[in-house]
Design a protein around this nucleic acid. Sequence first.
DNA 1: GGTCAGATTGAGGCATGCCTAAATCGTAGT
DNA 2: ACTACGATTTAGGCATGCCTCAATCTGACC
Lengths: 214, 214
Amino acid sequence: MKPTTPAAEDYLKTIYAHTEWQPAPITPRVLATRLGIAPSSVTEMVKKLAADGFIAHVPYGPLTLTAAGRMRATAVVRRHRLIETWLVRELGYTWDEVHDEAEVLEHAISDRLLEAIDAHLGHPAADPHGDPIPAADGSSVRVPAVLLADAAPGHAGTVLRVSDRDPGILRALADAGIGPGSRLDVVDAHSVRLPDGELHPLAPDAAGAIWLTR
Amino acid sequence: MKPTTPAAEDYLKTIYAHTEWQPAPITPRVLATRLGIAPSSVTEMVKKLAADGFIAHVPYGPLTLTAAGRMRATAVVRRHRLIETWLVRELGYTWDEVHDEAEVLEHAISDRLLEAIDAHLGHPAADPHGDPIPAADGSSVRVPAVLLADAAPGHAGTVLRVSDRDPGILRALADAGIGPGSRLDVVDAHSVRLPDGELHPLAPDAAGAIWLTR
DNA sequence: GGTCAGATTGAGGCATGCCTAAATCGTAGT
DNA sequence: ACTACGATTTAGGCATGCCTCAATCTGACC
Ligand SMILES: [Mn+2]
Ligand SMILES: [Mn+2]
Ligand SMILES: [Mn+2]
Ligand SMILES: [Mn+2]
């Protein structure tokens, strides 16, 4: 297929990420907001990406990835998450510090280096935030998950993933010892009970960032 | 100072590299050839770099770095060489495979990641080709060296560095077991004797890529 | 069915960094 | 001193990727 620029890769990745945990397709408006650019810039790039066969788009409609676009997107996501994992496991980064670095490096490393890092890390299945790392063929394991904010009071589960969007939330959770693998009992939408019996209050933002096993 | 783009960093690095082992300043023509671009493109970028205080240039004259330009250049060289060292020591790259990857990553990693890699590697003094890695303050240790092609017959020395410009030469030398630290007796401009007494012929290109202790 | 607010698209611009082709400069050789 | 010839610069263009502002579309509501 056509080669992709760093800018195009960020569009494809963001479109993909939007449907990774929620089903509804993304609109140009939301994509522009996520990328921090003007809606008209999205219109332009969408035209190119549609012409290149990476996205399907009817004017004034939502944006969906084609099979080729999904392949490119998962390739970028794979890079991003392997880089994050590498930074945390090998270089002393914490899980709230890795995102910006990965955002740049995901466009810079070669396939060769990507696979060398993957092998070096022992082919990890998930990144530091619990997000699954797609395989080289684009396949990805999806575990059914509930957002903590949507979980019924009394729900007991294991933290599967924490959204990496807000570093402040990540730091607060790390301080409380909460991360992927932690057991939690949901008391209500803004507090949880930890295995040691301690009641832990959650900011509304945090409850909207934590995904639990069903 | 002014921020620098990847393109500008490559200009500064290439100007710096030209005077690292030879004294004469670089001309626009040579810079264009090294960068693989048209001479007129150099004229334009030179204007910007001079306006930003990174290079000194009188029209129709050669190009020299200012103190600020030298600082930027050594910072990029430091990145490049630390990345090469990391690829070889940690990820199984050979010394002929690292250049292109480093050429891209040198513009992508943060200062934070750079210093983490440096610490992880134990603050190496030289890259896999024997090129000195400048310190974070821009200082660099320069060891007096002679190009093998210029060495007098009978000269005995240790390989200090091998130019990384031609991967073919690097592979051939690696096959012969020659690298930084190897002892060599210069027989003439195109053959050397190894410590085991074996006579080894050298392509003229190779003799122009190997630098020995004086 | 009409209105209108918000979403989307279009038009025109700007910065970066490259190009080719056409001046212009500087100097080495006569 | 002149004259080439190569090196350098200028002029004019192009692609990418963003912007602002204006036009157009869509769907929800009355
Ligand atoms: Mn990115
Ligand atoms: Mn992540
Ligand atoms: Mn480079
Ligand atoms: Mn090197």
